[in-house]
Design a protein around this nucleic acid. Structure first.
Length: 398
DNA sequence: GCCACCGGTGGC
DNA sequence: GCCACCGGTGGC
């Protein structure tokens, strides 16, 4: 297998704005409704997974009681345990099961049925965001039958959101003790990340602070997304580079830093030790897998000229990305010709070299696209083949 | 009227 | 076949 050593990779996700599903909303991808995550990063074998699953009810029914809660995400059509785990040669189509309307009778039934189980098992908790992509890892804590967030998977500019009986909340939870425990661990880390990203937003227009969540937190009405905003989930939210030595993926904290690495990567390959206090001995920040859509950038693309922002937008059908350069005034430029005419009419930008505007788009990695993406026959990424997850051939390298 | 988004195509 | 480019348009 060819190992990428001189590429940089971008992950597609939300930039700034998180759109959370309403109770009545129909998810874009029916198979990626919310599910609980029975598998933690610490679980080693398929047997062990099955054992864990066998301890729980697997009728495919939504057993949430009114005071169950989860962190983001949506209900899976497969039921609370997500899709089958067994290796398959092809993705398994989800059952066509409409999310049942929660009537009072159903709620009561579920509450009754869940009483005993809740003593033994963790509450339903998803590590996935509303796009079915991981926010963080957790591990099971047997002593109290609860889940505990063990590590933050990626550097994401999000607050953990909790939905309880009264709908969406931020920073509150019916099971307060659990949430406090989370706070003591990684919730604060997430909060810190958010602050950092705020700063970056000021400095580089990188990741906008999540205004919607802040407003909700304050109990204010949320203003609808402006028309001109790019649809969330189809812009880059995480930058990563692969170590030339150990081939682990490292999250790059800012677009500027990422572009700097990318522009020089052919002559100055990226290695783990280029990140502060990181070495090849440390576990990878990210694994290449289908939990996120990965796109592989071409190495050597020049850094975006000062004052401009380079924006990549994934098309809805995952067929390709579009590159834009955004001027300081917010005008989108779609081609080098448009850049040239912009600079001509705005001579204050004549110092920006035309050759530094590159509309080359990253390659969308089909095997990381959702199975129902328009693209044909996505490859299967198994959940337990670490070597497959971590190492990926560079499509731009022979 | 604007613009995000997509489809089509010419050049390589 | 790929992709940089841009015209068209639907939705706001």
């Amino acid at each position: 297998m060819v190992i990428t050593t001189s590429s940089s990779t971008i992950l597609i996700g939300e930039e700034g704005v998180e759109i959370r599903p309403s109770e009545e909303s129909t998810p874009t991808h029916s198979h990626r409704r919310r599910w609980s995550t029975p598998i933690e990063s610490g679980v080693e074998s398929l047997d062990e997974r099955l054992t864990f699953r066998s301890l729980t009810d697997h009728e495919g029914t939504d057993h949430r009681g009114a005071d169950d809660f989860y962190l983001g995400g949506e209900i899976s059509a497969w039921g609370p345990f997500g899709p089958p785990l067994l290796k398959e040669s092809r993705p398994i189509a989800p059952p066509q099961m409409p999310l049942p309307k929660r009537t009072e009778a159903v709620v009561e039934l579920r509450r009754e049925r869940s009483v005993t189980r809740k003593r033994d098992l963790p509450p339903y908790l998803t590590t996935l965001d509303c796009n079915g992509r991981p926010r963080f890892h957790h591990r099971r804590v047997r002593s109290e039958g609860r889940l505990e967030i063990a590590s933050v998977a990626v550097s994401i500019p999000e607050i953990v959101s909790v939905r309880g009986r009264e709908g969406l909340r931020i920073g509150t939870c019916p099971q307060e003790g659990f949430f406090e425990r989370v706070r003591e661990r990684d919730f604060l880390v997430l909060g810190k990340e958010k602050e950092n990203n705020k700063k970056e937003a000021e400095d580089f227009s990188l990741i906008l602070p999540n205004k919607q969540m802040e407003e909700e937190e304050l109990g204010n009405a949320v203003t609808p997304r402006a028309k001109k905003d790019v649809a969330p989930g189809r812009v880059v939210d995480t930058y990563a580079a692969q170590c030339d030595t150990c081939h682990k993926w490292r999250v790059i904290d800012s677009q500027e830093e990422y572009e700097d690495i990318r522009s020089r990567v052919l002559e100055d390959p990226f290695t783990c030790d280029k990140k502060k206090q990181v070495s090849c001995e440390d576990p990878a920040d990210l694994d290449y897998d289908s939990s996120r859509t990965w796109v592989i950038d071409k190495p050597g693309i020049p850094k975006t000229p000062k004052g401009f922002k380079r924006s990549l937008v994934l098309r809805k059908d995952y067929s390709k990305m579009d590159t834009y350069y955004i001027t300081p005034a917010g005008k989108k430029l779609r081609s080098r010709n448009e850049v040239a005419s912009f600079i001509e009419t705005n001579p204050e930008f004549k110092d920006a070299p035309l050759r530094d505007f590159t509309f080359t788009v990253p390659k969308v990695m089909e095997d990381t696209c959702p199975p129902d993406a328009k693209l044909a026959s996505p490859a299967v990424t198994t959940t337990d083949d670490v070597s497959e997850k971590s190492f990926k051939p560079n499509p731009f390298k022979g």
